[in-house]
Design a protein around this nucleic acid. Structure first.
Length: 454
RNA sequence: UCCCCGAUAGCUCAAUCGGCAGAGCGGUUGACUGUUAAUCAAUAGGUUGUAGGUUCAAGUCCUACUCGGGGAGCCA
């Protein structure tokens, strides 16, 4: 007896005897003398069709086997006489492992709304769409590691708990064991205030300045009260950091990385992606192909402002040097003007954090954002300030304490090197690749303001 | 956090001017010898998000709140 997954059986080359198969019933179609079950085990998008004749000994079990039940089937994989599938499992025995009460089981064969499925996140991976997302997410994670490993990067596990009270990106969640948070932080577990990380960047820079090519890939937390389809309080971020690399090397790496991930998924998740091409976004396949073919635009912030000023568009927010680009501006650049991914770089230093490298013009820093059509900002990164005196005055000018960053500054004191890196929001990438429009649907159990179920 | 929209059966939605609470799907029961979101017949299922208010009468109008969606800000 061989236990097999649906993926192996559906792609089998020959008939197979003595097969054991385990999974959950997606649908049941019965007639007087026989029953068809569609059984899914999550190994692939397709269900395995099981046919059980009333003559088998265990046929009586069938009356309790309804949509949602877990089952163990043994039998023979044979060519299916029906249309729609090559193989089917002809059951010698059907056994119910776990009952699912059809009166209350919330999933029906018909399509459900994403909003409804979010309320049953514990069951939604039993649908085609969320099963597919789960497989794509897993494969994409693997591809991230493979991309960096092929290029000699080391994977660094940067801490989740941080003591820096300002990492330069958003509000932080406090971590405490105090029963009263008004007590002095000196009495707390770490003897100082602690937070969940908003970025592994400062730590991973340390490693780049000895191991040259490194990256982090882990959970990241923002306590911003953001109520949008693109933000979550807990998300996964990929942050490569490379020594001896400038802002242009950084953009080259980012472009290669994004293209690699898309190609990898098109090759390895074809069947799952087709669900999204067919039912989620009809332009998706074309858009992905277009990104792979395009050379990403590299546009200085100053140039971007000029293009926007001369666009003739009636923007709600005016464009001028020194203000950040608004969503409407980003969309104009990626969706109307260039119609492809755009790097915008060399932003005014007044709107960017202290660690970005100051350019010789005295006004801008070597920051870069990658903007994608229909997704917006996928990547934010920069060349880092490697000159100790410039860094220290930037920290001071932003009203931060140099003492807090002594270890970060010492990288510049001992054998400093130019280095660059970026952060890529993993869920945003998944949204782009699948066309799914809400971040809550590409992460298993979403954490967003006022939502901490499951 | 701000602006707009919404919440009616398990799900997706309808309900005219404020006047008897409806459909499809799903469920249940039955029929059917190869089904494919099976088909056919019958049937059950409701404190209309919560709390107030206006009215002879509220799913429908008003107020607050909760949750959801879209947009904005913040950002990945």
């Amino acid at each position: 007896m061989y236990t097999k997954r649906a993926k192996e059986l559906i792609n089998a080359d020959t008939q197979l005897k003595d097969i054991k198969f385990l999974g959950w019933v997606r649908s049941k179609r019965d007639s007087k003398n026989f029953t068809f079950l569609e059984v899914n085990d999550g190994s692939c998008l397709k269900n395995l069709q099981v046919i059980a004749d009333e003559s088998i000994e265990t046929y009586e079990n069938m009356k309790d086997i309804n949509t949602g039940a877990s089952v163990e089937i043994t039998g023979e994989l044979v060519e299916s006489p029906g249309k729609g599938q090559k193989w089917e499992l002809k059951a010698d025995s059907v056994k119910m492992i776990g009952f699912a009460d059809p009166e209350s089981y919330p999933l029906q064969k018909k399509r459900h709304s994403d909003e409804f499925l979010r309320q049953i996140s514990h069951l939604r991976t039993r649908t085609n769409k969320f099963g597919a997302i789960s497989r794509i997410r897993s494969e994409a994670s693997f591809a991230v590691h493979q991309f960096f490993r092929e290029r000699g990067f080391l994977y660094v596990h940067t801490p989740i708990i941080t003591g820096s009270d300002c990492e330069g990106a958003g509000q932080m969640f406090r971590v405490t064991t105090l029963d009263d948070t008004k007590k002095p932080a000196a009495d707390d577990f770490f003897g100082k205030a602690a937070y969940l990380t908003v970025s592994g960047q400062l730590n991973v820079e340390n490693y780049a300045c000895s191991l040259v090519r490194v990256y982090t890939f882990g959970p990241t937390f923002r306590a911003e009260n953001s109520n949008t389809p693109r933000h979550a309080a807990e998300f996964w971020m990929i942050e490569p950091e490379v020594a001896f690399a400038d802002i242009f090397d950084n953009m080259t790496l980012a472009e290669e990385f994004v293209k690699y991930l898309i190609s990898f998924l098109l090759e390895n998740c074809r069947a799952d992606l087709e669900l999204f091409f067919n039912f989620v976004d009809k332009w998706l396949e074309e858009r992905l192909a277009h990104v792979l073919e395009s050379e990403f635009v590299r546009l200085e912030y100053r140039e971007a402002v000029k293009i926007l000023e001369q666009s003739g568009e009636n923007f709600e927010y005016p464009v001028s040097f020194g203000t950040d680009l608004q969503t409407e501006h980003e969309r104009y650049l990626t969706e109307k003007h260039f119609k492809k991914p755009v790097f915008v770089y060399n932003y005014p230093k007044t709107i960017k954090p202290f660690y970005m490298r100051q350019n010789d013009d005295g006004e801008t820093v070597a920051a870069m954002d990658l903007l994608l059509p229909h997704v917006g900002e996928l990547i934010g990164g920069s060349q880092r300030e490697e000159r100790l005196d410039v860094l220290e005055s930037a920290i001071k000018n932003m009203g931060l304490s140099i003492d807090e960053y002594w270890w970060y500054a010492e990288l510049r004191k001992y054998g400093t090197v130019p280095h660059s890196g970026f952060g890529l929001g993993f869920e945003r990438l998944l949204m782009f690749v699948t066309g799914v429009s809400n971040i809550r649907d590409v992460i298993p159990f979403a954490r967003t303001p006022k939502n901490l179920d499951f």
